[in-house]
Amino acid sequence: MTRSDKETLLSVEGLGIAFGGLKAVNNVSFGVRPGEIVSIIGPNGAGKTTLFNMISGIYLPSMGQVTLSGEDVTGIAPHLLARRGMSRTFQNLQIFQSMTVLENAIAGYHLQERGPVLADLFGLPSSRARAKRAEAGARKLLERVGLDRAAEREAGNLSYGSLKRLEIARALALDPKILLLDEPAAGCNAVETEEIDHLIAEVAASGVAILLVEHDMKMVMRISNHIVVLDHGEKIAEGDPATVSRNPAVVAAYLGAENADG
């Protein structure tokens, strides 16, 4: 495989998982290089989110291997993957609802701001300094995603589109080497989608590898360097946007899905 060269940051080899005999994802392989945007597309139920959950350590794959920066990280717990530079957002929002927008963003700095619990209990200067640094970083990130003016609001009261951006901000707070975005533009209007679009391109340009699941085909075709197509849990095609959109198997999968829906 030509793409799993030395440059590859994240490589997925023959990954699969079965739920009670049903193969939700089967034998999927691909790679992501730094600064590259790789999109995973496919009809509903193709296994995109399941694939994400395996890569990010939430599900334990029943076959295959995930390699990050040359190290085998298959089945490693999510909090350990975070330390190795992996960060993600969720299709169904996972926001800390009762915390403020700012606190949500600061939570993304957990690995940088955490310290001895006794220092935190006694409010020692070291603890306050850690928290202050994280807060400064979080405020900058909120500005970057256009949420700085909502910083003190309770996150649960924000609009859907704003929460999507808040999740991206929180994920960026980890200063990741690879960012997994699960439908970042779902439920967003055209303006918000374009903003997210710019944000993703900007993050990729800074050298972060991006793995994207997205239903908005225009967005996918516009920003992806490479596309992996899944159907019924299997990879049916991969390549640059132009190649993939011409692939008969891909067209059939999407048309078939549309017929089934209609």
Partner: peptide, 29 residues
């Protein structure tokens, strides 16, 4: 002591895992 904890990194991590365990794990908690 408790109020110190609330706004500290530890307190934030505790409230985060209360809000969403899966999200807390992915930010490294």
């Amino acid at each position: 002591l408790a109020l110190n904890l609330y706004n500290s990194p530890t307190g934030r991590a505790l409230r985060a895992l209360h809000g969403s365990e899966v999200a807390a794990r992915t930010v490294g908690v």
